[in-house]
Amino acid sequence: MYTVELTKQNDTAVVEDAAKNAAFEARVAADEFVEPKDWMPAAYRKTLVRQISQHAHSEIVGMLPEGNWLTRAPTLRRKAILLAKIQDEAGHGLYLYAAAETLGASRDEMTEALHSGAAKYSSIFNYPTLTWADIGAIGWLVDGAAILNQVPLQRTSYGPYARAMVRICKEESFHQRQGYESMMVLANGTKEQKRMAQDALNRFWWPALMMFGPPDDNSPNSERSMRWRVKRDTNDELRQKFIDVTVPQAEALGLTVPDPDLKWNEARGSYDYGAIDWEEFYAVVRGEGPVGKDRIKARVDAWEDNAWVREAAMAHEAKRAARKAA
């Protein structure tokens, strides 16, 4: 979306202008949308590029844990569903990369940042998918958490990001429902299947809660991001909302949420929950998760092994253009 022109515009936008800045803040405060060629503070642009590209990377890396089970899906129906879901994740990554490119970031730069480890992605994908039930749990919990994070972003201040989120949210709903349905089958199946479903919940519950990010008192850029409407609810608010909607879903499956401190709080109208291990979260974000290195290696290998395809496509087009010119 107009990336080429934006690259030029960026250079002039670096000089911050107080009047322009005030007008920008007023527009955003009035819930108006900012579009690619509009003037915006350099810090807003930078924040968005970081947030959108991290989001895109998460979608792309998110294909890997699921791809692990593609050839071993228990039925053809499940295999077709999983394949469609993984294709959606690729699509989500691409909508988001395209949105980030409207801010002047190049696709190659973003790819390079992911591969070098300079860019982060959601910590959840650094956990392995050990059993088939993990695929159901990911759809139900991970995509469920993603929906709560993403629904408010459909009204985020940056137009291309908001529009990408509208498409993504529509598709995520399929992801969550197929996951829950898959968990229902296991939870109502044999003893072994039910045990497998419980084990998946045990392993994915806490990482899913961490997906909402650090607690509010330790989330440095939260306030500014809220003001700029690139974030619309705090991490803790969204986490609480997720717990409140998910616990009854677990109960309906006949599964137990692995938190001994989980208790309904009548006065708050919400569940109280146990302490989250934030040390684990930061370690996993740094790529120290069980499979962090494998994830990036798989991405880099795919990129490098397929370089010849990109080169051949470009060479073919150069030849075609030369023939046309002749």
């Binding site: 979306m1 691409l94 909508y95 395209a98 949105a99 490119e101 291309p160 496509a313 073919h316």
Partner: peptide, 17 residues
């Protein structure tokens, strides 16, 4: 939205997907 592609036909195919 947008896609990256080497040529017009590839762009249409990527856009479809």
């Amino acid at each position: 939205g947008s896609v990256h592609a080497a040529d017009p036909r590839m762009a249409v195919e990527a856009a479809r997907d």
